[in-house]
Write a protein that binds this DNA or RNA. Structure first.
Lengths: 414, 414
DNA sequence: CCACTTTGGCAACAGCGTTTCCGAAGCGCA
DNA sequence: TGCGCTTCGGAAACGCTGTTGCCAAAGTGG
């Protein structure tokens, strides 16, 4: 695939066709796609593991192809045998699982007043975590220092080898494709800053950047659960603001410019009270006002109204709530939102969209950020990360990459 | 690929892995994918055509691979040479275009009081059209008769061979995967009726079913335009109701159960006037009330408020308006919605989401319905259509199909 | 007329999943 | 314990994909 040309507009009059939206596939990309598929199924299977015939049925590949793929993945050190199933009258099935320490990734959550970093292993488990006070409003260098410090505070040698990369989540808006911040609400001095590149250079590791809500949603989508392969859900985050992360048909939806998920500034009360954004009657304004009054029930009702609209608009399968405000009184918000959704269901086809509170607490976003780096291995996210600095050069293959060909993790030369 | 098993739940306790969300790929599916990609680029290029080197650059394939693919497509009769570009110092490039009459599809729009059918050719142009009064509330048999009649009223022999299939669009809700209607608002006797199967049997052709708004959006997405490969837009339809069709990153988004696009019942005035759906303050209720008062400006403002929320939530690139009410006073609605979006843009990053009125008039939906059948050829939609009756048996290949292997259109034996 | 550029076909090739075949490893019954 | 049966999974040949390397064809420009 031709990388995005730096030329502004190559003549454009004749002979310039738009780049094909889905990229063309060749043999290596096919191999990578199927390998990622198998890895993803093993990830979903968790510690229980999965057998070759099961993988074959789930993917649609022939058992023989699955054999070849698992053999390659084992050679790469990504998977290993994990016992066998009881026989059903013939040779028992051999089980496979992910090798926990085959790869690691760092997740970094830059919140307004706190920084959280986690080290996660290949299946997505948190190996180590670190939290510290933080000020996103501090000068850039100080913030970069703090970020690098939070990454270095993690036990680098715990899992052998360097981490694959660092996923960074922070308040939006920003552009995940270029890794550049836009005017982060309340901190205009970040506008236009290429945070991804700066951090990548300082850490000597690939860095991926995204909004906190997107990271959280991605983390929830990849949570060890089962059967949610193609499910759609919305993660609604109520903290100092109100935002959303959308997972549509199993894939994180960020929009063309990472702008998707601006949930808080939907108008739910035409000509209502003024909001900080300049509009009137925004969901966020009403919700935060109710919170300020201590009226969690009303805040939940307002939030539920927004959730109901979203459920209808996007045919969402479930709603997950999170954020400090919600976590302070989870039952009230869960019940309040659920009530509105149940009322909507009663008016339509009768099936209410289930509501839950996000597990993971204060590490939810950081863990999701790590998945910005891990997810491409499982075909759950386009690479998007442009490797920089030492470690893993830019030899990346076609779409989906090829986890099987990634080889052993680079040795820690430090 | 294993077809969806008819078994309800195969034991499910052990060894049942969820089906992989994206299907596995093998050589035939890779071939089909790339062939569809090339066809899609040629479709986007329109009458101007595209050359092999351009296709190679746009897809990322090698020129040699493109040569092989175009050769296969030419052999299948889908593409043909269309002149050459002026030389730039060497051998001039040969241009390729779609063969207009290589395939045809029928689009059928079942509206509440009118039925429209169109015959479209491979590039998506309307070859013939038919309109007649209609009553969706009539008994089922009468409706099926009318639908079949509208299809047969089209000049079948105009393009040689039978059409690929019939795309049907009607008011929702319904399930596009099973082709079964749900309780179409106002006509409860359609609830649960397998319209797709019934029509397919009667016509002896494959049938695809979807919501009218989805069909319209799909048609707009595939309109001969250029460069909108991965663009996102919303089609907002204001007629007797208010609905939306969503195209996200170039693909029609229907949700898991075709439920996406329920735009009219988002609450924009908490505790506002009651809506027919039982809720209060729905966008649709306020909008229709303003229309009933003859206040197009206020209706547009309300509609614009909904559009602004949607633009933020989904990072939409543009908004397209349609429906009888809009078409009755296009300037008022276009300007009114644009005003709200411009105000929102001024509050955020300053780039307003452009608004336009859907071209195509009364045939917009029918034309989009035909694309339900054509789009899979271009990799723009999963097949979804289960061929029934004579014509094109169920020999369909892997994901994306393989247009190159489709062979010549079946001869019209009638 | 001749270098030079560019297009695009031919042939050999590596590597993907598929097919076919068969040994390995368990169960159940005699 | 032995034997038939079932199921798993490896080995090898295969068809077909896009890729690579080479070269003829078809233009431009001096």
């Amino acid at each position: 695939m031709t990388p995005a040309s730096p030329d502004p507009a190559p003549v454009a009059s004749l002979g310039s066709l738009p780049a094909a939206s889905p990229a063309a596939a060749n043999l290596p990309s096919l191999r990578g796609h199927n390998a990622a598929l198998v890895l993803d199924l093993l990830r979903a299977a968790g510690g229980a593991g999965a057998s070759r015939p099961e993988l074959a049925e789930a993917t649609g590949l022939t058992p023989q192809a699955v054999s070849k793929i698992t053999a390659r993945l084992r050679e790469a050190g990504l998977v290993a045998q994990a016992g066998r199933r009881p026989s059903t009258g013939g040779k028992p099935r051999t089980l496979w699982r992910l090798v926990r320490d085959a790869r690691h990734a760092v997740g970094l959550h830059l919140d307004r007043d706190e920084i959280t970093s986690v080290l996660v292993d290949l299946p997505g488990g948190v190996v180590a975590a670190h939290r510290a006070p933080f000020d996103l409003g501090a000068p850039r260098e100080a913030v970069l220092d703090a970020a690098a410090g939070a990454v270095r505070a993690l036990p680098a040698g715990a899992g052998r080898g360097r981490p694959l990369g660092v996923g960074v989540a922070c308040p939006g808006p920003l552009d995940h494709r270029t890794g550049v911040l836009r005017r982060v609400t309340g901190f205009p001095h970040w506008d236009g800053h290429p945070l991804r590149e700066a951090l990548s250079r300082r850490l000597g590791l690939p860095v991926a950047l995204d909004k906190d809500t997107n990271a959280a949603a991605l983390g929830l989508a990849l949570r060890g659960g089962q059967g949610d392969g193609g499910a759609s859900f919305a993660y609604l985050h109520l903290g100092t603001g109100l935002g959303a992360g959308l997972v549509l048909e199993g894939a994180l939806y960020r929009g063309t410019r990472t702008g998707a998920g601006e949930f808080g500034h939907q108008v739910v009360l035409l000509d209502g009270p003024e909001c900080g954004c300049g509009d009137r009657g925004c969901l966020e304004a009403l919700c935060l006002a109710a919170v300020a009054r201590g009226d969690a029930a009303e805040a939940a009702r307002v939030l539920g109204t927004g959730a109901a609209g979203l459920a209808g608009l996007l045919d969402i399968d479930r709603v997950v709530l999170g954020g400090r405000t919600v976590l302070a009184d989870p039952e009230a918000y869960s019940a309040g939102v659920q009530r509105v959704l149940a009322a909507r269901a009663a008016r339509t086809d009768g099936r209410a969209v289930p509501v839950s509170v996000a597990p993971g607490g204060v590490r939810l976003v950081a863990r999701g950020a790590a998945h910005l780096v891990l997810a491409p291995l499982f075909g759950r996210l386009e690479p998007g990360t442009r490797p920089q600095g030492p470690g893993r050069g830019g030899a990346g293959g076609g779409p989906g990459g090829d986890p099987g060909k990634a080889g052993p993790p680079p040795a820690d030369s430090g």
